[in-house]
Simulated scan of single mutants.
Amino acid sequence: MPPVPLVREITGSGHVIALQSVPVFARYEGRIERVTVTLGSEVRAGDVLAVLSDPPARLALDQAYARLRTAELTLTARQITLAQAKADLHRAETLAARGSLSQSGLENAATTTRTAANSADLASAAIEEARIAAAIAAERVEALTIRAPFAGTVTQLNARPGAMILDRSDSIREEESLLTLTRMDNLAIEADVAERSIAGLMPGLEAEAELDAAPGAPFPVRMTLAAPEVNPAKGTFSLRFAPLAPPVPLRPGMAARIRISLPSTTQTAGATSQ
């Protein structure tokens, strides 16, 4: 009798996951002045999500700009002094060449010019320091406006106007974030299968999935990733699948079941094992 192909079927259960879902934190502490999104809002990269209020930060920015302006005025004054010192030195050199000015007088004029030049250089350095301080202060104020890092959907919203929040260094738990932003166009199905089923599973494999949200409506998926480690407590490992034609719009957290059919061995019809 011709050999009859046997099919090995592997099943697993899992959920729809978002491949890009990020909790958004404030970089600095402050009080939430307003929230510009709601749960489910779709935003573009750079859109304003929330605005914080921090009067000391804005005052620090005003002070930094004032110090920068003072440094610029100081430099202008010292440049005028330097220009006058150079002019005096030129006259001193002319008089010394005619014998109308002593050597010490010429040296004093040269020293005055060098001192004025050093003062102008210090004023220039002070301006650079003031510009850096102003940039740091401006960055802190700019960070009070929380913007979307990428285009996505607000899938969790914790921010409430009037609430006081900590900065990112003090807020490491996701529930302390302002919100969670998720890319809904980049979803996958992650399912666990038994460790004994690992043979023959590799990326690119075609399979079938079914959602609890759409029972009786299986659809094709393609395996994209197999976890490099087995879960020793459960005796399973995770597989990730790209949905090809789901019957309903996918949402993170949806329950799903996976069915994989693989060729196994062949045996002759009617043959008996020895």
Rank of each mutant, 00 (worst) to 15 (best):
M1Q: 04
P3T: 11
V4D: 09
P5A: 12
V7W: 05
E9R: 03
S13Q: 06
G14W: 09
G14M: 13
H15L: 07
H15D: 13
I17M: 02
I17S: 01
A18M: 08
L19T: 06
Q20I: 00
S21Q: 02
P23T: 00
P23Q: 00
V24K: 01
E29M: 03
E29A: 12
R31I: 12
I32M: 14
R34T: 06
R34F: 09
V35Q: 15
V37G: 02
V37L: 02
T38Y: 03
L39K: 14
S41L: 00
E42V: 06
V43P: 04
G46I: 15
D47G: 15
L49P: 14
S53C: 10
S53K: 05
S53W: 03
S53A: 14
D54Q: 02
P55M: 10
P55T: 13
R58S: 15
L59D: 14
L61N: 08
D62N: 10
Q63C: 12
A64S: 13
Y65I: 08
R67I: 10
R67C: 06
L68N: 03
L68P: 03
T74K: 01
T76M: 02
R78M: 02
A83I: 03
A85G: 07
D88G: 14
H90E: 15
A92D: 08
L95F: 11
A96Y: 08
G99C: 12
S100C: 04
S102F: 10
Q103A: 14
L106A: 06
E107R: 02
T112A: 10
T113D: 10
A117Y: 01
N118T: 11
S119F: 06
A120K: 00
A120V: 02
S124L: 00
A125N: 14
I127G: 08
I127D: 14
I127T: 14
E129G: 15
I132S: 01
A133T: 07
A135E: 01
A135K: 05
A137D: 12
R140W: 13
V141P: 13
V141W: 07
T153I: 05
N158A: 07
R160P: 11
A163P: 09
M164I: 08
L166P: 07
R168T: 09
D170F: 14
E175D: 13
E176A: 07
E176H: 06
L178C: 09
L178I: 11
R183N: 02
D185F: 01
N186L: 14
A191R: 01
D192H: 00
V193A: 04
E195R: 09
S197T: 13
S197K: 13
S197V: 11
I198L: 15
E206S: 06
A209W: 03
A209M: 02
E210C: 08
L211R: 00
A214S: 02
G216E: 00
A217P: 09
F219D: 15
R222D: 08
M223K: 01
E229R: 15
N231V: 08
G235R: 12
T236W: 10
T236Q: 08
F237S: 15
S238P: 05
F241K: 13
F241T: 15
P243R: 04
L244Y: 09
P246C: 06
P246D: 09
P247K: 09
V248R: 04
V248G: 09
V248N: 09
P249A: 14
L250K: 10
M254I: 01
A256N: 03
R257Y: 04
S261W: 13
L262S: 09
P263F: 05
T266M: 05
Q267S: 12
T268P: 00
T268E: 00
G270K: 06
G270S: 05
